[in-house]
């Protein structure tokens, strides 16, 4: 492989990893604090992307930048609604109950999206400034890939700052280990749960907007992303943001390698990888074993 091919594929792998990371980060953040797996995370992602196509339809020129705000907001509102309306009543219950409730929500949101946006595949263009490519050691690199990678870095950095350098972050981390202490110190746990869940949804919505100019937006993208996000989060270890970053990199690289070495095995390879990781470390690379 020559250098330019190597560069093309490395950036391809990195951009794949970046878009996966933004989705998986939200999923794993919610799991870390609330200990629940949110299947409806895929719905938030899809609604973010669909909202982006609508906004761009209204404002063809500046639409994408407006969508970067509107899309996550739509997801945030949905997330807060879901948390307060449904999940709040289920925290004491088993995993299965929460899993099924969010699965039911995924089904409901999928059909509602069909009502609002129809069945046609929708599509938007990247904003003009980043709608091209530039040369790098003989390879053409899509400028929009840089936007995705930058978004992932901003999200990852932001979450790291939030979790390690703010009191809110301290509360989020503490809520899993010792909720009683938090309550005693006057923290409104209910608000905290709603907030974290909303933040997770917001990230899913953001990922939807960011991915929209690159992919076809339409029905079915919710269920697809949720499986991909699970794989990333589970390989990295549920609850660990760093794990999600590592997991998404592993999947990005594995997919690229698979596509090069054995294309018709590539999709099988990913699941095999997840199973191998779970067989060796059943709680993922950076996760903690469940008690």
């Amino acid at each position: 492989m020559d250098l330019s091919a190597f560069v093309t594929q490395s950036i391809g792998a990195l951009s794949t990893a970046s878009s996966l990371f933004i989705v998986a980060a939200g999923l794993t953040l919610v799991f870390g604090a609330l200990r629940l797996i949110n299947i409806a995370h895929g719905s938030f992602y899809m609604y973010g992307a669909l909202a982006a196509t609508t906004v761009v339809g209204w404002f063809p020129d500046s639409g994408f930048w407006i969508a970067l705000i509107v899309g996550p907001l739509v997801a945030l509102v949905m997330g807060v609604g879901v948390e307060m309306g449904v999940l709040r009543r289920l925290y004491g219950r088993e995993h299965l109950t929460q899993l099924l409730a969010t699965f039911a929500l995924l089904l409901i949101f999928a059909d509602l999206a069909l009502r609002f946006w129809g069945k046609n595949v929708r599509s938007i263009n990247p904003p003009k400034v980043v709608n091209g490519n530039f040369g790098l050691v003989g390879a053409r690199v899509p400028a929009y890939d840089m936007v995705i990678i930058a978004a992932a870095i901003v999200v990852g950095g932001g979450l790291w700052l939030l979790l390690t350098h703010t009191t809110l972050g301290w509360k989020i981390r503490a809520v899993v280990d010792d909720p009683e202490v938090l309550v005693c110190s006057g923290v409104n746990i209910r608000m905290l749960y709603t907030g974290v869940f909303g933040l997770g949804a917001l990230l899913a919505g953001l990922a939807g907007v960011v991915i929209a100019p690159q992919q076809a937006v339409g029905p079915g993208m919710d269920a697809q992303i949720i499986v991909a996000a699970f794989i990333v989060a589970v390989i990295g270890g549920l609850g660990s943001i760093t794990g999600a970053a590592i997991g998404s990199l592993i999947i990005g690289i594995a997919e690229t390698l698979g596509a090069n070495l054995a294309p018709s095995w590539a999709s099988t390879f990913i699941y095999l990888l997840m199973i191998v990781v779970l067989a060796v470390r059943p709680w993922g690379l950076l996760g903690t074993p469940e008690r």
């Binding site: 797996i37 499986v227 699970f230 589970v234 779970l278 059943p282 469940e290």
Partner: peptide, 24 residues
């Protein structure tokens, strides 16, 4: 393999087997 994991990880690990079988 799957029962080495507990609870949610068990659920997700069986899900991975399901997807693996589907892909195969």
């Amino acid at each position: 393999v799957a029962l080495r994991a507990r609870k949610l990880y068990f659920a997700l690990s069986t899900l991975a087997f399901s997807e693996l079988a589907y892909q195969l």
